[in-house]
């Protein structure tokens, strides 16, 4: 951030806007490529949840770590990934982050501190806890930010890890992206609590529920939690309430929710929210348009790069198998 005091400058907010829009267009174009048959398998789109990844990652130092989820494209971009290599991974190319071997659900960007997406819900939580343990033992002043969904909050891995992080006072921030559904299972059915953040009490750590579609609120809340973690005061639990606009994966008929509900949340578009704020801050439409155009160009370049890239070979893949 430009300001040393952690207070956001206008430039920082414009950068947040750029990243959120980058995530949005990345996802929309990836979906189109899937429809065209250029991407295969399945993936999980982050559209509508951009403010969580961008707000939270903006509160981190570049050398801090994150762990991601099966819906990880947004986290990856927010942590500074090269979208060329991301797109190449979705197209199963050798130039992708995982050399075409991992795909959407396993993108990791270790150099940028992204310890990886995962296909096993909740499995990033113990890993984040372990990474935080490593940072504590190495006394390196780094913080781990752990993204996971409402669904993951009901896994055994969540309970064991949050407790362990709490008792060891580990430098980790647990960011629960409550997008209201674990696949088809509504949080109203999955929890006997109104706020998932109330769980924090049970582990003796602070917990807070926030508007996950307000990037500035996500940033401010995460900033406090990150500083707390860095000072050795232990973990914080943040529940960021947001909404998944698209289906769970590419095979979801969405019979479990109404179109009205989806529309209602689309009216609370996190990007439009920030756009409105920036206009109030006297940012000109032209400037926002320029950012958008630049992002769109960047995405098209990434797609071109991915399409032109070679595929991995079996011989190369075999070199990665050590046992």
């Amino acid at each position: 951030m430009r300001g040393d005091d952690g207070v956001l400058a206008l430039e920082d907010k414009l950068e947040m806007y750029r990243k959120m829009y980058l995530i949005r267009v990345f996802e929309e174009r990836a979906e189109e490529l899937y429809m065209e048959g250029k991407i295969w398998g399945t993936f999980h789109l982050y559209v509508g949840e951009e403010a969580v990844a961008v707000g939270a990652c903006s509160a981190l130092r570049t050398d801090d770590y994150i762990t991601s989820t099966h819906r990880g494209h947004g986290h990856c971009i927010a942590k500074g990934a090269d979208i060329k290599r991301m797109m190449a991974e979705l197209l199963a190319k050798d130039t992708g982050y995982c050399r075409g071997l991992g795909g959407s659900m396993h993108i990791a960007d270790v150099e940028k501190g992204n310890l990886g997406a995962t296909g096993i819900v909740g499995s990033g939580i113990p890993i984040a806890t372990g990474a935080a343990l490593g940072c504590k033992l190495q006394k390196n002043d780094k913080v781990v930010l752990c993204f996971f969904g409402d669904g993951a909050a009901n896994t055994g891995a969540f309970h064991e890890s949050v407790n362990m992080a709490a008792i060891f006072r580990l430098p980790v921030v647990f960011v629960c992206e409550n997008n209201m559904y674990a696949m088809s299972f509504s949080v109203k059915k999955a929890f006997a609590l109104p706020d998932i953040a109330e769980r924090a009490k049970g582990y003796g750590i602070p917990g807070v529920s926030i508007d996950g579609n307000n990037v500035l609120e996500v940033y401010e809340t995460t900033k406090v939690a990150v500083e707390r973690a860095r000072q050795g005061e232990g973990p914080t639990f943040i529940e960021a309430r947001t909404y998944r606009w698209k289906g769970h994966s590419k095979s979801d008929r969405q019979a479990y929710r109404t179109k009205e509900e989806v529309r209602e949340w689309m009216n609370r578009d996190p990007i439009k929210f920030l756009e409105k704020y920036l206009r109030e801050e006297k940012v000109k439409d032209e400037e926002l348009e320029n950012i958008k155009k630049q992002v769109e160009r960047e995405i098209e370049e990434a797609i071109e790069f991915a399409l032109k890239s070679p595929e991995p070979t079996l011989e190369e893949a075999r070199r990665l198998v050590y046992a």
């Binding site: 295969w40 398998g41 991974e89 199963a92 995982c98 075409g100 071997l101 991992g102 795909g103 396993h106 595929e311 991995p312 079996l314 893949a317 075999r318 198998v321």
Partner: peptide
């Protein structure tokens, strides 16, 4: 083949 399932469709088929 002795390998975790790869994402790339050609490799996935080959193993």
């Amino acid at each position: 083949e002795e390998m975790p399932p790869p994402y790339n469709p050609n490799l996935e088929r080959k193993i």
